[in-house]
């Protein structure tokens, strides 16, 4: 009766699980130019990002967090994407880009999980480069 599990693999592809269990750019940065932390009070997902800039470029970025596979993998992917980009380029990254990078179907209830990392990045960027 309940043998149809299609769609589940779509939700949790291997690379999502890989980013969840082996997050890239994990940790914190000594002497960061900006640090921002936020959580999703409804589910307790939490992400902190540290940024180091040089000449308008994101020279280094680290994140630390806890939460579901989608929130953590999304943040991990995002750090890979923005590292080495200019602040202006990073600031242009939008919701759609994040979802496209994840490449999985995100239900409305889980959208907040997928986008927490982006929210934290944007706040950190505006701390690091308030004029932008």
């Amino acid at each position: 009766m309940q043998d149809d599990f299609s769609g589940m693999e779509e939700l949790y592809r291997d690379f999502i699980l890989d980013h969840y269990r082996n997050p890239r750019n994990a940790g914190t940065l000594e002497g960061a130019d900006a640090t921002y932390e936020d959580n999703n009070p409804l589910c307790g997902d939490r992400i902190r990002m540290d940024l180091k800039l040089r000449d308008g470029v994101i020279e280094d970025i680290k994140f630390k967090g806890r939460g579901c596979a989608i929130s953590q993998a999304s943040a991990s992917l995002l750090t890979e994407v923005v590292k080495g980009k200019t602040v202006a380029e990073a600031a242009r990254i939008g919701k759609e880009d994040v979802l496209e990078n994840l490449g999985i179907q995100i239900s409305a209830a889980r959208l907040k999980c997928a986008l927490l990392g982006l929210k934290v990045l944007k706040e950190a960027l505006s701390l690091a480069a308030p004029d932008l």
């Binding site: 309940q2 589940m8 939700l11 409804l42 589910c43 307790g44 939460g67 579901c68 999980c113």
Partner: peptide, 27 residues
């Protein structure tokens, strides 16, 4: 295991099973 409650609840949801996931107003 290391499956976060929300991931487990999402998978169960696809099977028609409604459970609660989170801190249950009990942080």
């Amino acid at each position: 295991g290391d499956i976060h409650a929300h991931d487990l609840a999402s998978i169960l949801d696809r099977l028609g099973i409604c459970v609660r996931a989170g801190h249950h107003c009990n942080q």
